[in-house]
Design a protein around this nucleic acid. Structure first.
Lengths: 178, 178
DNA sequence: ACAGCCATGTAATCGGTTACATGATTGG
DNA sequence: CCAATCATGTAACCGATTACATGGCTGT
């Protein structure tokens, strides 16, 4: 009666699957290089998490040493592989496929708390910040393209989201009282 | 030297601002009715949080009783109002305005772990689930329209995100190896 | 040799969820 | 009156972040 794996656990299973044998540090680097800042991939999150996954028999590890440095390399167990497939889905639940959280959208209903001038600045700064992130996302796309079609598709997904958000903000600036 | 308010704290400040005087239960209902399932608005989160905000002098409360039921009504203090304005921004940081987290997108690079048939089913189920959520979001829009332009804009933002995601999934289904 | 980064961890803190407890109100 | 729901909390657990500690490696 194992509980389903969390988002972070599922992502780590996927990263290990793709790179096995894989060290916790490689996983951390992947999070650090990701354009999405949602998870920090901090050491305090990743190392204990991978130990937990091993305790749950979803990962197994072997000691490893490059030169004199100790370390562990992780691989998926068959149960880990099955847990990964179940995490990917389908079925998709509401948190996976529903309206994604968006801190910018969250702020919109509270804009009347700002004076009109600050409200205009809010939207102006938002638009230029989104453009900057869009440029980063496009750079990320070209960087990931050699890694295969699915990495390309993921990067395109990020661009799609940013583009939609940009249009949305532009519409708000155009019709402030729509 | 107060730390900046978190997303949940900022949202609660905004909700209290819009409805003051406001009980924790009203705040919880707002989260429960929100189409985004990101925060549960559980009692164990909201009641202690509002007490913390009062301890930080961003909220003040007065005891209240309807019939024989005890309770507290909260209002913003001037400092709370300033904290709300600072939370809304600008400036926007990367977590606010960058690529939003998206559990569906997160799964894409791991699709090769699925057999081809399951991969097709993943995309098929994703598309139909997004359509269902889009219908909910549109219903939410018409429900919120009477509450003013900013609630309308927020609801439209959710629709924009879902529409973009739908097009993205449709493109993936059309060109599985793009 | 020494500074700085790479790599592997651990400990304390903090906050959100889950589960539970309790009383008040309302509908049948 | 009794059940279901509304409303107000509390406590335990769990996990992510922050900050710290350590030791090996690399360039100058």
């Amino acid at each position: 009666v194992r509980r389903p794996v969390t988002e972070l656990e599922g992502t780590v299973l996927g990263l290990v699957w793709a790179r096995q044998p894989c060290t916790p540090y490689q996983v951390r680097r992947e999070f650090a290089e990701s354009p999405s800042p949602h998870w920090s991939g901090s050491a305090g999150a990743i190392y204990p998490l991978m130990r937990r996954l091993e305790a749950a028999a979803l990962l197994r590890s072997s000691a490893h040493a490059t030169g004199r440095r100790r370390g562990r390399r992780y691989r998926l167990t068959p149960a880990g592989r099955r847990a990964l497939v179940r995490w990917i889905g389908p079925p998709h639940d509401a948190t996976t496929v529903g309206v994604p959280p968006d801190p910018l959208r969250t702020r919109i209903p509270f804009l009347p708390a700002l004076p009109a001038k600050a409200r205009a600045r809010f939207l102006e700064e938002a638009e230029s910040a989104i453009r900057a992130h869009l440029a980063h996302a496009r750079a990320d796309l070209t960087r990931r393209k050699p890694h295969g079609p699915y990495f390309t598709l993921m990067a395109q997904g990020a661009i799609t989201m940013l583009t939609g958000r940009l249009e949305w903000v532009r519409a708000m600036r155009a019709h402030p009282d729509a």
